[in-house]
Design a protein around this nucleic acid. Sequence first.
DNA 1: CGTCAGCATTACAACGATGCAAAGCGATGT
DNA 2: ACATCGCTTTGCATCGTTGTAATGCTGACG
Lengths: 336, 336
Amino acid sequence: MRVSLKDVALHAGVSIKTVSNVVNDQPHVTPTMRARVQKSIDELGYRPNLTARHLRKGRTGIVALALPELGNPYFAELAAEVVDAAAEHDYTVLLDHTGGRRDQETLVSQGFRARVIDGLILSPIELEAEDLRQRAEPVPLVLLGEREYDLPYDHISIDNVAAAREAVRHLISLGRRDIAFLGARRGRSQPAHLRLRGWREALDAAGLVADHRLVAATDGWGHADGAAAMARLLDAGHRPDAVFAYNDLIAIGAMRVLSERGLRIPEDVAVVGFDDVVEGRFGAVTLTSVSPDKASIARMAVESVLSQLNGAPRHQARRIHAGYSLVERESTLGRG
Amino acid sequence: MRVSLKDVALHAGVSIKTVSNVVNDQPHVTPTMRARVQKSIDELGYRPNLTARHLRKGRTGIVALALPELGNPYFAELAAEVVDAAAEHDYTVLLDHTGGRRDQETLVSQGFRARVIDGLILSPIELEAEDLRQRAEPVPLVLLGEREYDLPYDHISIDNVAAAREAVRHLISLGRRDIAFLGARRGRSQPAHLRLRGWREALDAAGLVADHRLVAATDGWGHADGAAAMARLLDAGHRPDAVFAYNDLIAIGAMRVLSERGLRIPEDVAVVGFDDVVEGRFGAVTLTSVSPDKASIARMAVESVLSQLNGAPRHQARRIHAGYSLVERESTLGRG
DNA sequence: CGTCAGCATTACAACGATGCAAAGCGATGT
DNA sequence: ACATCGCTTTGCATCGTTGTAATGCTGACG
């Protein structure tokens, strides 16, 4: 069995409370006493029982992070950043993944999966505002990602519209005119709408037509979905001279298909992705991509949870934009 | 504040324990009583406080998973599998990452990072046997990965030597003779030694020389490390006709350098990786790779932790081999 | 009608830690 | 020598839940 305060107290010949005071660095403990108790603590190898502490104090030191899928390197990289950011505050991260399914996301938001947590950082895909409106859970919640809700929860993301606009403007500056968008989620009410809006706005601003036939829906957000969408576009007889993808995986899947069809990147088709995952930096053609500042997203998410825990007013939600940059690589090199 | 058993008991006009019995589906509760209490539970929206339950029962329902780096898709994919496997047993996963550093790995193994866990699944990189020998922690531990220790802990991995042998044998069967190995960790006592041994054994068995000049060390396990190692090899005047990499990321990094130097894959240089990460299936040249059965690794790891929790003898450790297969793709296509 | 078996319900203690308030103790002032 | 002050140390209750043991109650049986 584990060593408890009681054992240490017995060993040191003092009261339980005194040991507790030493452990918690309370004032009003004489150096002598502190030393004596510390000795017993060390000898017995005492370590506080966080469960008990939590029961008493109402804190666990754990924040949950619920992501659509860990297999997507963007989320994996983000998770790593969150773990680090949490560690800075002596917090650990409990990981959950929802598969981007609405029922799972709802369950997680209501605390059904993990109930021993101080806060929740959730990156929703299909969750609807109404699902959250019914949330009775007192646990602080922070939302990440592209979905926007008019609800009293902090929301952290980059300015997706502006970032998408910048990406497409970059393609236009290279002289591209027929710019496809890959990755509007098929059959969804909110299909990647912010990035799609940025695409449209950039085209409008340049006096180009936003041809909806160049918008290809996908079922998911992986390589295979990008490949399928690209193939569909080409099979339908379209030959865009540039592609802006919802994310890097879709872009990479698309690039694969483009080269299978004998199209050169960037000469024939320039490609821009979104997320700046490591993978995009090492393909045969490196990928130009919008690079969200993952570290600061993670940091702000953790800080939001902690500030809510420390009594920040929960009714006024903040919409926080993290930084981003467009990283240009081979897939948009030179003039097309 | 949250609703507790006490509140429900008051509301229903019964004792706390009776409510507890209803909640836990204990026998010896009359249907009438059960209905009455259930009504109060529903009306008040009671949900058990897991922290208190855990304090009482000594279990938290959380297993920790400590990985070297989440940024590596192999580990991210594995983490996703572990989360799923744990969920099947109503367990959630607490994620930690060690950066593959020995001090972090030691801390994690001793429970310093996360102290609210029922078990720990650890994938060590630099941890030494002595670090674990001093482990006093009563929490069940399972080890994953290539490192082998003669210690009383279950260890789950694939048969790295056999898998590496098979990969290299495949290259030999394509007529390749000068087969490089990329990824022995530089300056380490146990540099990827199992996969390296498989490489050597396959060459020996085929009557080929295992030329140690074709073994290139790396600093880490990422794309950049593979690229650097490949560049170093080529710069030194070596021109292998095949490359076997410690993992897919290193392989992909190497492929990038190979094509930069105008070498064709697989015509000039065939490449085999290890891990079968999704990324390898969507490059310009898809990557042949050893594919460990991640799902069953995850499942067995979780089951090992749970069986230890349920009193399985801890002194006799098991060495468990999961399945794997060699998936052939474009990077080793046809005859060279 | 009284007794007892047997099930339903309850009271109490405990898991380990901490907040609060009271008790202990040495030093100081008169 | 004694009252007082102030810091150190302690005892007790408590967080929400569950295991154990005791109690209450109903109905069957003699």
